[in-house]
């Protein structure tokens, strides 16, 4: 047996093993990749194509108009829609995370009834958005609603939540935060519980107060969680639909990019091409945000 023969044997075995692993990899990945390609990327690509058509939903015919839908959006609707989207996203993300963090800090302490309180805080997150929207619509109803009844006890009248665009947006934001802060609270709670006790005890021995301990030890250690929550809640907020649809079907003051896309296609206008253009803009914004967060914000994150 030659020297080359003794080397070739293990190499062949190595190649066969690599081939087997590759085939196994393909066998596992291919079904999922095919599903994703058919049900996610195909609609995505088709959507970009539709966005360049003057196409009435349901019609078999359409006219190619190039960037006409984009031109119309940026010259007509962009200011109001992007402004509403920005306000809704910033306030709901900021509100959910700040209140969620505050709740997590409280729930991390040894309090009586802590476990029921944790469940209560998280419960709205798992409820149906439609159900939540209907219940809160009744609460905010300025004539027969619960809030109006409470205000009447104090001699005040209820604001016109459903008629004033600014108030409608405020109302939906309040409900969105209420529904979603449990998610942030639970994730933050898990992060807080992972902070090493010895570090906190060392800080206490060194005379650091609660505020200083939080700023210098806890906050940096939970920054990966903050980064994760920031990304997921921004993406979720930008795609919010159910509460807006149920509470403000006309979209008065609450027409975010997502809802504008729905209204244009299904809200009576039937402009599938224009709706697709808005959807495409939403995707581009989501991609830009994701890349920006990964490139720049993640540098500020401290991974222990």
């Amino acid at each position: 047996m030659s020297a080359s023969g003794t080397i070739a044997g293990p190499r062949r075995r190595l190649n066969r093993r690599r081939l087997r692993e590759s085939l196994l990899f393909v066998a596992f990945v291919l079904p999922n990749a095919a599903l994703i390609a058919v049900f996610t990327y195909r609609p995505l690509i088709l959507n970009v194509w539709y966005s360049m058509l003057d196409w009435t939903l349901g019609s078999a015919r359409a006219t190619f108009i190039g960037l006409g839908n984009y031109r119309e959006f940026f010259t007509k609707d962009a200011g109001a829609v992007l402004g509403t989207t920005l306000i809704f996203t910033v306030v709901t993300v900021g509100g959910s995370m700040l209140i969620g963090l505050g709740l997590a800090v409280v729930l991390n302490r040894r309090l009586i009834g802590r476990n029921p309180a944790r469940a209560t805080v998280f419960a709205p997150y798992v409820l149906s958005g439609v159900g939540v929207g209907l219940v809160w619509t009744f609460i905010f109803d300025p004539v027969g609603g619960v809030l109006a009844a409470v205000l009447r006890k104090f001699g005040a009248s209820s604001p016109q939540w459903f008629l004033q665009p600014g108030l409608s947006l405020t109302m939906v934001i309040i409900v969105y935060i209420w529904k979603n802060l449990g998610y942030c609270a639970v994730i933050y709670l898990a992060a807080l519980q992972a902070v090493p006790r010895d570090l906190l005890e060392a800080a206490a021995l060194d005379g650091a107060g609660r505020s200083r301990t939080f700023r210098s030890i806890v906050w940096p250690l939970i920054s990966p969680t903050t980064f994760f929550l920031l990304m997921t809640t921004i993406l979720s907020s930008l795609q919010s639909f159910d509460l807006i649809r149920i509470m403000t079907p006309m979209g008065q003051g609450t027409t975010t990019l997502m809802y504008a896309s729905y209204l244009q296609a299904f809200g009576g206008y039937n402009r599938a091409g224009y709706s697709s253009a808005i959807s495409t803009i939403l995707v581009v914004i989501l991609l830009i945000l994701t890349v920006f967060q990964m490139r720049f914000l993640e540098r500020k994150v401290y991974y222990a």
Partner: peptide, 16 residues
């Protein structure tokens, strides 16, 4: 992937 998937889901949900 989450970001890409979310964007794609938004599109597939909205496209006609």
């Amino acid at each position: 992937l989450i970001g890409l998937g979310a964007g794609a889901a938004a599109l597939s949900a909205c496209s006609g």
